[in-house]
Amino acid sequence: MALFDRFKKPKAATKSIQKAAVQGAPLSRKEQKPKTEAAPAKLAAERSEETKAADIVSARYAGILLKPHVSEKAAMLADQGVYVFDVPVSANKVEIRKAVESVYRVDVSIVRTQRGAGKRVARGRIAGQRNAWKKALVKLKKGHTINLVEGV
């Protein structure tokens, strides 16, 4: 078909590559093949099966925890072992528990959620509505902590 002819390499170009390879001449940038590194493949092979499985689980729940909720009240609760996260409105307690356990590698004892409806706002004649939100208060078992403000 004529549509796919433009994607084919011209025969003259392939012959010049073969001649250059035979004569030992260096290839141009377009003619060179991209270099592939074997280092990532080695690292992936060396990782244990348990680590791979944990990464798969944490990737599954990566979208559940949007961000840590930063406020004075959240900081005071963190001293008591309760951590606050902003989560999607569609998230449920079971998903939140699994997400925190897989991402932070801790044991969760209680998950409480709080929903906020988006308030109607008016700016002059233009009426709108703020987004609805949901936050999760996650209490960890004794001995477990999460360092949310690492490097701040």
Score class of each variant (00 low, 15 high):
Ile64Gln: 10
Arg105Ser: 12
Lys35Gly: 08
Pro34Met: 03
Lys15Asp: 04
Lys15Phe: 08
Glu31Ala: 08
Thr36Leu: 07
Lys52Pro: 01
Val57Ala: 15
Met1Cys: 08
Arg97Ser: 10
Lys52Asn: 06
Trp133Gln: 01
Thr14Trp: 09
Val121Lys: 01
Arg29Cys: 02
Leu66His: 02
Tyr83Gln: 05
Ala62Asn: 11
Val149Leu: 15
Ala38Met: 14
Val121Phe: 02
Gly24Leu: 01
Arg130Asn: 02
Glu49Met: 04
Leu77Gly: 12
Pro10Met: 04
Val152Lys: 14
Ile126Gly: 00
Val87Gly: 00
Gly81Tyr: 08
Leu77Ala: 04
Arg6Phe: 13
Glu37Ser: 14
His69Pro: 02
Ala12Trp: 05
Leu66Lys: 11
Lys15Thr: 04
Val87Gln: 01
Phe7Cys: 07
Pro26His: 03
Glu46Asn: 01
Leu137Thr: 12
Tyr61Pro: 06
Ala78Pro: 07
Leu27Gly: 00
Lys93Leu: 07
Ala45Met: 00
Tyr104Met: 09
Lys141Trp: 09
Ala117Leu: 03
Glu37Arg: 12
Val70Gly: 01
Ala38Glu: 10
Ile96Ser: 08
Gly116Leu: 02
Pro10Leu: 04
Gly81Lys: 12
Ile17Asn: 00
Ala136Asn: 04
Gln80His: 14
Lys134Thr: 10
Val149Tyr: 12
Pro88Arg: 02
Lys119Gly: 00
Ala78Ser: 15
Glu50His: 05
Leu148Trp: 13
Pro26Met: 02
Leu66Tyr: 02
Asp5Cys: 11
Ala136Arg: 07
Lys33Gly: 07
Val100Thr: 15
Ser71Asn: 04
Ser28Asp: 13
Lys142His: 11
Ile110Pro: 05
Val89Ile: 13
Asn131Asp: 03
Arg130His: 00
Gly118Val: 12
Ile56Lys: 15
Arg60Leu: 10
Ala13Lys: 14
Thr51Glu: 12
Glu37Gln: 07
Lys35His: 12
Val22Met: 04
Ala122Tyr: 06
Glu37Leu: 06
Asp79Arg: 14
Ile17Gln: 02
Arg112Ile: 08
Arg105His: 13
Asn147Met: 11
Pro68Met: 00
Arg6Leu: 12
Glu95Val: 13
Ala136Ile: 12
Lys19Asp: 05
Ala25Asp: 09
Phe7Ala: 11
Tyr104Ala: 06
Phe85Gln: 02
Glu49Val: 11
Val103Asn: 14
Leu77Lys: 15
Lys98Met: 15
Ile126Asn: 02
His69Ala: 07
Gln32Asp: 04
Val57His: 06
Leu137Gln: 13
Thr113Trp: 08
Ala20Cys: 01
Lys9Ile: 13
Asn147Trp: 10
Glu95His: 15
Gln18Trp: 03
Lys73Trp: 03
Gly124Pro: 00
